[in-house]
């Protein structure tokens, strides 16, 4: 006789409440995002607050006290007769190099869109200026602009365009020195601009371009009245990155001109470093650096508003 046994009762384990908490998407999402937020708070937020406090203190390496001095540091900076020149140089350097970088990026993207043998290799190589350490690249540029052994001057002389006596003194003439740092920064920025333009252009629907072509739009009209307005939001994002990085940059000036000749290429980042780190007046160095903040805020908010309007 068969014995029918009752099926075993499933063992019910007590379930921890924590397990259900983790099953909630909101909670788990917050846990995952927490390290990133903590990272930003610790490495961006805390130094920023510290810089704010430094700028209203008398903190120096000579006397590391936290004595509050109000807006005294800012007052001293504004009274400096060469500060306005430094501020102007920073704008010129930033917007000049971004403009040049964007123009080079746009043409580079148009060239790289066309099929040609070795296009993939060229696309990979063109990114090099963006990834090469700026210290190395700037040293190479320094040799090209050198007053004694400039390869650019050597070429110009070889082609009979200039003579040895009237060859340009790239880093010794104020206007040319500014042009040099703009060129080096644009050279560094343009591969990024190419990538931005390529991403934007390839996202434009082909039927829109075809329709424009059928309607008789030529190369310039297609590019500047159809494609460019459509990709402006993505270009603006790239531009925000470029402006923020350039406005706060000191490496090119530090390595290439040390702010010279005179104060012709002195920019806020370099000046802040010289005063705050090299000379040890951390408080005034922080105050100089904070002059960038309102400018960058206005630029970034303005551009983000522009992007939002374009998207609507």
């Amino acid at each position: 006789m068969a014995v029918i046994t009752a099926p075993a009762e499933p063992v019910v384990r007590p379930v921890s409440r924590f397990r259900f908490v983790l099953d909630r998407r909101g909670v788990l999402g917050s846990i995952f995002i927490a390290p990133a937020i903590l990272y930003v708070l610790l490495l961006v937020g805390v130094p920023f607050l510290l810089a704010l406090y430094y700028s209203v203190s008398a903190y120096t390496l000579y006397d590391p006290s936290w004595r509050f001095v109000g807006l005294g540091n800012f007052e001293q900076i504004v009274r400096n007769p060469v500060f306005l020149e430094t501020l102007g140089n920073t704008f010129l350097f930033t917007f000049g190099s971004q403009l040049l970088g964007l123009i080079m990026g746009k043409f580079g993207a148009l060239l790289l869109l066309r099929p040609f043998p070795g296009r993939r290799i060229v696309r990979a190589l063109i990114i090099l200026p963006w990834v090469v350490p700026i210290a190395l690249a700037t040293i190479a540029w320094q040799w090209m602009f050198d007053s004694l052994y400039s390869v650019i001057n050597w070429t110009l002389i070889a082609f009979g365009i200039v003579t040895r006596e009237n060859a340009p003194n790239w880093l010794g003439t104020p206007s040319l020195a500014m042009l040099c740092i703009i060129i080096v920064n644009a050279w560094r920025f343009f591969p990024f601009a190419i990538v931005i333009f390529l991403a934007g252009i390839t996202a434009v629907p082909q039927d829109v371009i075809d329709a424009a072509t059928v309607d008789g739009a030529g190369f310039w009209r297609r590019n500047y009245q159809i494609i460019l307005p459509m990709i402006l939001p993505i270009v603006a994002i790239g531009l925000i990155f470029g402006i923020v990085f350039t406005f706060t940059d000191l490496s090119i000036v530090f390595l290439l001109t040390k702010g010279g000749p005179g104060e012709a290429t002195s920019v806020l980042g370099f000046e802040g470093f010289q005063v705050g780190i090299v000379s040890g007046d951390v408080a005034q160095g922080a105050a100089i650096s904070l002059f960038m903040l309102p400018v960058l805020l206005v630029v970034v908010i303005g551009m983000l508003r522009f992007i939002r309007r374009r998207e609507i």
């Binding site: 602009f145 052994y149 003194n169 001109t257």
Partner: peptide, 17 residues
């Protein structure tokens, strides 16, 4: 005018050249 943009090694090169 070359001296306007010199760094610390430039005068060495100028003499040694």
């Amino acid at each position: 005018s070359e001296v306007l943009s010199w760094d610390d090694s430039s005068n060495n090169r100028y003499l040694d050249s």
